[in-house]
Design a protein around this nucleic acid. Structure first.
Lengths: 162, 162
DNA sequence: CAGGGCTAGTTGAAGCTTTGACCATTGCCT
DNA sequence: AGGCAATGGTCAAAGCTTCAACTAGCCCTG
């Protein structure tokens, strides 16, 4: 990669965009998390896991796949799932085809909690983001972070430093 | 605000954009934070505070103003500044005009650390985001999160639930 | 089929953030 | 002036995330 003296600064517009993104993301995530906690006793991390499981075949997923799909560390998912298990939202199940594996399974209760939480969460995402902004601009956000995610996803050496 | 049954789901495209944003942001923040920590022993929160102070008149800022400018809670800024103070990056100073107030001041060392960290941090932001995406798309990101931040910034009752 | 190396997942400690209580000071209102 | 609500900042405790081992099972090679 380039040396430091070759790295151009961000121009005025880029700087503005970058800071707006930082501040906006901080406020947005904060609020969505807070709403989920207050109304449904769920963190956003827990909510995302419920969503992923509900979309998975058999409502079950290997821990590692789950971790990758939400882009959280395995350790983090282990802890989060443990808390959710204690709350009866998911269960753990040994994987039949791989003795090392563990699957997280959505319980009845987890399904019910998700069904309750989803509409209000979606409403929040709309109210604070989607319905506020131009549709094309929001698609641009999708393109930008698709690109970022692709570039940063596990094992892309092009993104390593120097 | 609208009732739940009136809230339409996100359409396919919106859903894709929303998830890309979540995943991309998670990966990006993770990496930027890691780079800053490994190369300069700074968290992103600390880095942002250094930047804000370096731009402030007299390199000093009231705690509350600082907190607002990075959109972090006051408590969080208190803790972060305490750690930075222990590391010699900033100093605390009583506010002359308001007996309740405290000002954070950038030290020589803090200035030096920022001068070292900034180029590599900017390089990271470019490498993993700015240089990867279409310029117009990135401006759209700026518009979107400007709007979000405006809507969510302290004391906008329109964004409250129901 | 034994060994080494890899992958899956967990664990506990350390670190950061949030929450809520708390105290001091200030500004407003009468 | 005197009382009282609001503001600024801090702190301790609780919660979540990260980090660095660690266990166990898989797979490849000799």
């Amino acid at each position: 990669m380039t040396l430091d003296q070759e790295t151009p600064w961000l121009d005025r517009q880029q700087q503005r965009s970058w800071r707006a993104y930082l501040v906006g993301t901080t406020l947005l995530m904060d609020r969505l998390d807070r709403e989920l906690r207050e109304q449904h006793h769920l963190s956003m991390a827990e909510y995302e896991i419920l969503v992923r499981l509900s979309e998975a075949a058999g409502n079950r997923m290997r821990m590692a796949v789950l971790a990758d799909s939400v882009s959280h560390s395995r350790s983090r998912v282990t802890h989060t799932v443990s808390r959710m298990e204690a709350a009866g939202l998911v269960a753990r199940d040994a994987c039949l085809t791989d003795g090392r594996g563990v699957e997280a399974v959505l319980t009845e209760h987890g399904h019910a909690v998700l069904a309750e939480a989803a509409p209000t969460h979606v409403a929040g995402v709309r109210r604070m983001l989607v319905d506020l902004v131009d549709e094309d601009d929001f698609e641009a956000v999708g393109r930008v972070f698709d690109t970022v995610a692709d570039a940063l996803v596990e094992g892309n050496p092009a993104m390593d430093i120097r």
